[in-house]
């Protein structure tokens, strides 16, 4: 069984890269605005669906990905302005209910538009990289690279731009940031836009590997929330490492313990991290005075 380890680790990295890609956008919105953005799963679904429609109209896949992702950005901003902004001071429960409601609304709209039946965008690369130790699809390598590039993009925006400075300030202390003259409206629009962009890219790319249907975002977004807890809410590096960690763990549980316990492994690690490091592997404890 140990001879299968290189292949299982590669399988875990491939699975983890899809988790990381979805978790990245979610952690940004949750970390900055403290909004449990459940419809992030639907933004992911819309990215996949928009790409499917565009490719169906003959648009080249690699052109369809950015167009679809920009479409998702618009939906993301709309989501915030219509669903969250007006109840921002209503408390966490209101935000959570609004998030769940919008998640359902987007699923229903997608069902009306494209039906409930699963569909798939044709994978642009079908090649396989075979080595003596492992095999991996070329497209999985693309998704792996996309996860790292998206992380780099968000990191550059947050750490090398004035907008990023404002977003980080808002994440650290909203009241202080407002007192310093940072405009909340634009920060939240930018945060939602970046989060939705990453969600859209994730959907566009992964929709070419997995079936697309209105409720396809439910399971990934649950996993993404687990990753947030593992990596630390709002921590980009935590989302990436947490995604890979979860992917590898799930594969190792299925590969070496039992495939019937794959999901139990996910939630076991969640409980362990919550006990040992309640703020996540990369999160920092807050001191309230």
């Amino acid at each position: 069984m140990i001879e299968l380890l290189p292949q299982q680790l590669v399988n875990g990295l491939a699975l983890g890269s899809s988790y990381a890609l979805i978790a990245l956008g979610l952690t940004l919105v949750f970390g900055v605005l403290q909004i449990p953005n459940f419809p992030h799963g639907e933004l992911y679904m819309l990215g996949a669906s928009f790409t499917y429609v565009l490719v169906g109209y003959g648009v080249n896949f690699w052109l369809a990905v950015p167009i679809a992702s920009l479409g998702v950005v618009l939906v993301g901003i709309l989501l915030d302005q219509v669903g969250y902004r007006r109840i921002d001071r209503g408390g966490n429960l209101s935000l959570m209910i609004a998030a769940l409601a919008m998640s359902t609304v987007l699923q229903q709209v997608a069902t009306l538009l494209w039906g409930a039946e699963p569909h798939t965008t044709r994978t642009p690369f079908t090649g396989i990289l075979r080595t003596p130790y492992f095999s991996i699809g070329i497209y999985q390598i693309v998704i792996f690279a996309a996860a790292l590039l998206c992380w780099l993009f968000v990191w550059l925006v947050l750490h090398r731009s004035r907008l990023g400075l404002a977003i980080r300030a808002m994440a650290q202390n909203r009241t202080a940031a407002l007192l310093m003259g940072i405009e909340l409206t634009w920060v939240r629009i930018a945060t939602f836009a970046i989060g939705a962009l990453i969600g859209g890219i994730a959907g566009s790319l992964l929709g070419a590997a997995f079936p697309i249907y209105p409720t396809m975002g439910l399971n990934p977004v649950l996993k993404a929330f687990v990753i947030l807890v593992i990596g630390g809410v709002g921590n980009l590096w935590g989302a990436i490492v947490g995604g890979f960690l979860l992917g590898i763990l799930e594969i190792l549980v299925a590969g070496y313990i039992s495939s019937q316990l794959q999901d139990i492994g996910t939630f076991a690690i969640l409980v362990v991290v919550l006990i040992i490091r309640p703020n996540g592997l990369f999160g920092r404890a807050e001191v309230l005075r």
Binding site: Q8, N11, A14, L15, N219, V253, G255, S258, S259, Q260
Partner: peptide, 17 residues
């Protein structure tokens, strides 16, 4: 003998075995 679940999209661990 291995298992999966409806809605799963990754079966690589089971298939490798």
């Amino acid at each position: 003998q291995e298992y999966f679940q409806m809605g799963d999209t990754d079966f690589s661990a089971q298939i490798t075995k």
